[in-house]
Amino acid sequence: MAKRNSLSWNDKTREIIDKRLNVPREPRFLTPVEFAVLEAIADRIIPQPDDRPRVPLAALVDDRLVADVGDGYRSAGSPRLREAWRQGLAALETEMQARYDRSFTQLDPSTQDLVLKQMQKGELDHAAWGTMTAKEFFKSRLAHDIATLYYAHPAAWSEMGFGGPAAPRGYVRMGYNERDSWEAAEASEGKEDQARKDNARVGR
């Protein structure tokens, strides 16, 4: 984010990233109940560190649902984007009520993980899922949407060392272990200080 005002970001990029960072935190498409379940799921799909502001994943998913832009395909049996999320969250809640007599949000984290693992393997099979399998929901909607939205956020880019937006300024040094002065350095063991010093200069 330090590079926001540098030549690595064009105006269009600044505009849309600003919009993303300022995404409304209240649900606009989902109901508050659905939103709370989504928040609980997002915490498990992408656990976030406590030492920085959290990326509001549920809000970003909700924002995508407001825009209602699909992926350009869905498997036979799955409804469109909005209905898929509605139906999937509802089916999960119904199955949790049937199985544990409580909401997903009230389960402890390890049970939540267990449930998600079962969903991934297709082991949730309540009738409420209808024609869309739990496995398909996990793969194409739940994990897919949450993780791709997370890795579209500058906080995630910093975490993984991605150079981030790059235009009009691109890159020059292309070879092994080469880094432009406007890219973040990696902190290898024993060299954290050097990396920190280098990285202080990256924003230019």
Binding site: L7, A167, P168, R169, G170, W182
Partner: peptide
């Protein structure tokens, strides 16, 4: 090159 002289940090090199 893109950005011209404004982007001299890249374009002087490339």
């Amino acid at each position: 090159a893109l950005g011209g002289w404004r982007n001299w940090r890249q374009n002087m090199l490339d």
